[in-house]
Design a protein around this nucleic acid. Sequence first.
DNA 1: ATGCTTGGCTGAAAGCATTCAGACTCAGCG
DNA 2: CGCTGAGTCTGAATGCTTTCAGCCAAGCAT
Lengths: 357, 357
Amino acid sequence: MANMKKIAELAGVSLGTVSHVLNGTARVREPLRKRVMDAIHATGYQPSQLARGLRRDKTNILAMIIPDILNPFFPGVVRGAEDVAFSNGYRLVLCNTDNDHGKEMMHLNALRTYLPSGLIVIPSDFSDLSAQAESWRRAGAAVVCIDRLPRNWSGDSVTINNGAGAYEAASYLINLGHRDIACITGPLHLTNSQDRLKGFKRALRSAKIDVLPGFLQESSFDRAGGYAKTKLLLRMVPRPTAILACNDMIALGALLAIREEKLHCPEDISVVGFDGLDLTETTTPQLSSVYQSPYQLGAAAAHLALDRVADKNSPVRHIILKTELRVRESVAPPKSLAARSTSAQTTVAAPPALAAT
Amino acid sequence: MANMKKIAELAGVSLGTVSHVLNGTARVREPLRKRVMDAIHATGYQPSQLARGLRRDKTNILAMIIPDILNPFFPGVVRGAEDVAFSNGYRLVLCNTDNDHGKEMMHLNALRTYLPSGLIVIPSDFSDLSAQAESWRRAGAAVVCIDRLPRNWSGDSVTINNGAGAYEAASYLINLGHRDIACITGPLHLTNSQDRLKGFKRALRSAKIDVLPGFLQESSFDRAGGYAKTKLLLRMVPRPTAILACNDMIALGALLAIREEKLHCPEDISVVGFDGLDLTETTTPQLSSVYQSPYQLGAAAAHLALDRVADKNSPVRHIILKTELRVRESVAPPKSLAARSTSAQTTVAAPPALAAT
DNA sequence: ATGCTTGGCTGAAAGCATTCAGACTCAGCG
DNA sequence: CGCTGAGTCTGAATGCTTTCAGCCAAGCAT
């Protein structure tokens, strides 16, 4: 492969001039510029990103650390980031942590030696990250945290409006007439779980509905967790008439548990998920869900990172994306109400005894 | 960040010795070795992968080019490759082509300047790749092609046994008593589609069943395609009693179309998908499918690539992974048979007139 | 005409690790 | 005791690009 020196010889100019033509770092008069370009085209020369990175102290690489690409929420995030990276001449290196802080650290350490311009990270469980991030920033890299934030995160970030999304979903159920509403949250050490729970509680509070402690179940963000917690909920008296699952995987588990108990969704119990993954359209019943755009999450993060690369000192930004409740088949008014009339939407909850099995 | 020179000074040795300790490229006696290691630990020194790559003419990076991470088949492949890469000290850079040959080329060209040790590629539609691959190999990089191969691919590869998988699925339907079996293939310029079709035809041929040309429909690998082609099939006389969809997305579209036509799967028509994605478990009915392991596909590819890096001259390898038919709810004997007895499995097909609407 | 700017270009230095030829040490052998 | 060879270690050269100090010429003001 040709190198810059050869181009310089071919074009009869100095190394510096070739570099300036390539990077636009200085004016070069047309004749020279043309000779350089011709030489480049003639040889198919491409500058070594390694030498370039070595000299400039950063490469056109964006590093991305996520829990697990197999979780159907993350491919969208990755794709959004990759698209933005690609169209700006950057490449994306992808790392999975499995929510393992140790693995996250290994990636964090190893990646830095490639001098990526930026790092987009969805923190693993319990990760602090502040120290690492600070060290990356000192080394000149942009760090953007997305989806969920470590406590005290002070850098750039992109999240969604978790509280508002949960609030909207819960309010929708309430307006439908539900009073016995359970919430299966994600792991409560994660900020997104916390915020969703807060939104849920806020909705119930504004409707003057008491939250039974048993109706709040913490789960992992997967089907197994949703399944187990739903089994629990279904045995309670009174039994909830609606469940807000704090992600779609949990909701899938809930649907499964409901079916296994020979109950029907939405007739016996309504379910709303969170995330709005594609698969919510292919379940039976189709799952209502608080949609968020993983693609936008990733794309916004990449933009933020590149902006930060361009200007180290601009003020820190926190982007908060909107959610959107997508109502599909998995919600209906509670039986007690459906049996009466539809005008009863603002009545108080049916007596618990009725709602129980 | 500390560099090698500083370590050398701290340890009171030469640059070369530090390098040898780091890479095991030469014997270093214990006392020196220890001093070097101590200096490294004291400073937290990590060698610059850029300088290292520049010098060695390759980096510990594996490049991966896939059509689209949003397609639920690919995350598994990526994860498999990333795991193997990670545990060997490599990182994965991920590129999406959207099956666009132009984009594929851009990635191919740009990536090389980072000097990755290997490239794992799922070729886009119509890509040739031989020239590019040759050029990568000349530059010292391992190239592994997976999932589908360009015509005349002569390098390392990992695929699944598409023919056998389709054969098994079709045979299963035949044994169930189906005679009017349709196949919705993927794009037939892709080798995996071709092989699946061949397997399908072979199964019918060995059962002495004629394939109606109309029962072979070529589709894109997505829900829309499966939906459209199924609509077509459902209007045919005789109507097929079973459909082999050459991937799960197509199968999803088929299920949708069947439902829309007020028909029932599997009572009116059986459906078998291909790939065995997770979502086949959450559809209604649960989708039978020819399972393949995307994870293994990716992992095998990464192993192949790393082996090739280690030994440039070992013979080319073609790994072919096994498939496994996973029978779930979406298949049943054809109505005509179900109405009679179950012992009729080897009778000839029911008269077309009966099978039609 | 002289002194200054300014624009355009040059080339050496720097960034960091690997590698190779060569130097040095020491044990073993004649 | 001298020589040889194996075993260690050294440090300069190398890979490629960016950047910065500096040079030259042309243009302008005085």
